[in-house]
Simulated assay, not measured.
Amino acid sequence: MQSNLFVCCLLLLCTALGEAATRKPKKQPAAEASNTAKADPEPTDASQPKTLARGWGDSIQWVQTYEEALAKCRELRKPLMVIHHLEDCPFSQELKKAFSADNMAQKLARDDFVMLNVVHPVADENQSPDGHYVPRVMFVDPSMTVRTDLAGRYSNRLYAYEAGDIPELITNMKKAKILLKTEL
């Protein structure tokens, strides 16, 4: 009972963090905005990830932005897999460990997909059809269609995957490949 309560609390925390990340900051008056901009230092390289992989698999070629991912998806005629996550979310961390440790998931990602992992919301609202929770995995085919039919096993968070759901994620990755070949 306590473990279920703990898992629920963690899921709610990750959901709240994901929704907080998507909120737009309040606009400041012009005078305050210019003063704040001068006072805030530029981000340093230490605050940036060392690679685009962010721990999800160094042998995979990752793209930097959603727009770049869509262009590559269309150019290479490969499906796009977008992993929405947060660095400080325990569920995201566990999924990352499981995904990076699974040889089949890594091989499929490396060979058959354009890959993007994001820690910030993307402008395409189709990437959050049932909320801005994390971790969330979505597939997009080269016709720019978000594959809402490729969902995980949870009815309340359709595109959520946990560390133990890697076999289901691999199944959906294979479906994304098969659907691509039969529909395009």
Rank of each mutant, 00 (worst) to 15 (best):
E67M: 08
E68H: 10
E68Q: 15
A69S: 13
A69T: 01
L70I: 12
C73Y: 14
R74E: 11
E75S: 14
E75M: 15
L76H: 11
L76C: 07
L76M: 10
R77L: 11
R77Y: 03
R77Q: 15
K78R: 12
K78F: 03
L80Q: 00
M81C: 07
M81E: 11
V82G: 02
V82S: 00
I83R: 06
I83K: 12
H84G: 01
H84D: 00
H85P: 04
E87Y: 13
D88T: 15
D88R: 09
C89E: 14
C89F: 09
C89Q: 12
P90R: 08
P90F: 13
F91Q: 09
F91L: 15
S92E: 14
S92K: 08
Q93K: 10
E94Q: 13
E94W: 09
E94M: 14
K96W: 02
K96D: 01
K97A: 03
A98D: 11
F99R: 05
A101T: 08
D102S: 12
D102G: 02
M104D: 01
A105S: 04
Q106M: 03
L108F: 05
A109E: 02
D111T: 07
D111G: 01
F113C: 06
L116M: 03
N117E: 12
V118K: 08
H120E: 14
H120Q: 13
P121V: 06
V122F: 07
A123S: 12
E125K: 13
E125T: 04
N126F: 05
Q127E: 09
P129K: 04
D130L: 02
G131H: 07
G131T: 05
G131P: 03
H132Q: 09
P135W: 04
P135Y: 09
R136K: 15
F139V: 00
F139S: 08
V140Q: 11
D141I: 01
P142F: 09
P142I: 03
M144F: 02
R147Q: 11
R147C: 13
T148P: 01
T148V: 03
D149L: 11
D149R: 11
A151P: 03
A151T: 08
G152D: 14
G152H: 15
G152N: 14
G152L: 13
R153S: 15
